[in-house]
Design a protein around this nucleic acid. Sequence first.
DNA 1: CAATTGACGTAGT
DNA 2: CACTACGCCAATT
Length: 100
Amino acid sequence: MTPFACAVYGAATRIPRGKVATYGQIAELAGRQNAARAVGQLMANNRDPKRVPCHRVVGSTGALTGYAFDGVEMKRKKLLAEGVVFKGPRVDLAQSRWHG
DNA sequence: CAATTGACGTAGT
DNA sequence: CACTACGCCAATT
């Protein structure tokens, strides 16, 4: 595990239930403000979906971009179940965005 | 070590 | 708004 990856997963773990964070946010918490893309890479390659709530990570617009194991559909359901507010096809960041 | 890849982000059309 | 064109970064090949 690289230090960066560790920071990223660490940050992701801190996301409270019912809230979501953007890739950019995670990148920032991990110390690389414009590494949003790299963050996605790690999530996609994430071998421990049980340890990291990667379903609480969405795009800056609130769009659900992907979910490695169960697909975007399942991701949406999970968030919905946790109380995340959706605005049409995407998350309503105005309400459900996590402020760390 | 260089090239390729991907769950991004912002600005412009 | 939806779509395109570029910039960015770390992991993999």
